[in-house]
Design a protein around this nucleic acid. Sequence first.
RNA 1: GGAGAGGUGGCAGAGUGGUCGAAUGCGGCGGUCUCGAAAACCGUUAUGGGUGCAAGCCCAUCGAGGGUUCGAAUCCCUCCCUCUCCGCCA
Length: 422
Amino acid sequence: MHDLKALRADPERFEAALARRGLPRAFDAVLEADKALRTIQTLLQADLARRNDLSKAIGAAMTRGAHAEAEALRAEVAALKDRIAAAEAAEAGAVARVEALASQLPNLPADDVPDGLDEAGNVEVKRWGEPRAGGLEHDALAARLGWDPEAAARLAGARFAVLSGGLARLHRALGQFMLDQHVAAGWQERAVPLLVREAAMFGTAQLPKFRDDQFETVDGRWLIPTAEVSLTNLVRETILDEAQLPMRLTALTPCFRREAGAAGRDTRGLIRQHQFEKVELVTICTPEQAEAEQARMVEAAEGVLEALGLPYRRMLLCAGDMGFAARRTFDLEVWLPGAGVFREISSISWCGDFQARRMDARFRAKGEKGTRFVHTLNGSGVAVGRALVAVLENFQEPDGSVIVPPPLLPYMGGLERLTPEA
RNA sequence: GGAGAGGUGGCAGAGUGGUCGAAUGCGGCGGUCUCGAAAACCGUUAUGGGUGCAAGCCCAUCGAGGGUUCGAAUCCCUCCCUCUCCGCCA
C-alpha cells in the first residue's frame, strides 16, 4: 500500500514510477477518490462534533432536572441523525473506493532499477562457476532415478510429483542442508502455518490482485504460495523495538500455486509444480538497514549454490519484470547444462514499507516519539525442487547416474550416488 | 463438536448508559535532591485521521463488524481470539 500523504505531495513521482513498470497513469484516480473521501470526512466530523455537544448538553440538562430543555435538545439532535447516517455510509463507500484503487497498484521501483518492460531488460550483474555443456535434461534423468509423474497425476493431477528412494532422499537432503546453512549463518528458524487468513495474504500483497494464482480453502483460508507470507506476517499489527531489528527469519515449507497463467509452460518435468518446497529467507528491518540486508540475503542464497557447486548468474531485474510488492529484486538463475539454459532458482526482493503498510507493522526508534513502518525483504534460499533439478543436470554421469554433492552427504545416509533403476 | 469464562493503554488492573480516552499501580521519559546512584518527591507518558501557516481545534479507537440510544468501554447481534471442563483426534 502506498503512502497517501506522500502521494498528495508529489503525485508525478508516483506516476513516473508506475510508467517505468509499463503501466498507465493510475494515481490520478486514487487522488480523486482520496479527495472525495476527505471532503466527506470533514462534513461528517463536523456533524459528529455537533451531535457530541448536544448529547452532552442533554446529559447536563437531565442531571439538572430540566426535562423540557432536554426534550428540546433531543429534537434538535434527532434532525442530525439522518444526515450522519448518510454521511457514514458515504464515507464507508469512499474508503472502499480508495482502498480498492490503491491496493491494486504495485510498489515503486527503486532509482537504481534499470528500465525495461520484460525480462529482456534485466541486467546480469554477476556470474559464478563454470557451466558445463551437454547431458540429459532433468526429466529424463529423474524418470530413471525415481520420479513417477503418472502416479502423481492419478492421485493429484498434473503438475504434482512423486519421488522415490534416493531421489526423495536427495530432495529432503537439499532442504535440510539449506536450512542448516542459513541457521548457521544467523537466521532464526521458524516452523509456520501453511494455511493463513486472507488478511495475511493481503499483507504481503498476494491479495487482492493475484487471487487466481492461489488456492483457497472452503473455510476462507489460503494455502501459502511461499513462506514469505507466513514469515513476513509474523510481525503484522505489531510495534517492534528498534533493538529487535533486523529480524532474520527462515523456514522450509511446501508452497502451493495454481499456476493459472502458466498453462502449457514447463509442463514437462519438475520445474513448475502446484506444490514445491522452498527455503525462504525473510528480513524485517529499519529503512536504514534494508540496503545491507538485501546484500546479505543475496549472499546467503548464493552461498547455497556455491556450496553445492551449481553455476549461476545474478540478475538485477528491470522495472517491468519485478513482482508487485518489490522495489528492487535480484534473481539468481542456476545453470542447467542438460537444458542449456539459466533458470530462476531464487528471487530476492526489497519491498520497502509497502508490505508493512498493508500489515501495519511498525517499529519505535530509540529517541523518536512516533513509530515508523518497518521494511520487509524476502528471498528464496533457495527453491528446493529447482535445486534438485539443477543437481541432477549438473552432477549427472554418462551412465545416467548422479553424484551426490559433498555438502549433502551428511544427509544421505551413506548414499553417494543415485543410480538408474534397471 | 458440547458447556462455561473472558478479551480495557507498554504491562497489571478498575470501570455496567452521560464531561470516560478511560481510576489506580508498575514500567518508560523529564526534573528536584545527590560527588554519583538508589530511595523519595514533582511532572509527563496511546494510536490513526480531518482541519489549519501555526498554536491549536475537531473526529475515531476499550478484540473486529453491525445494532439500540440524544449519548455506548458499559445494553443487543454476528464474527475473531484466549482460557477451563467434556468429547474426539495425529
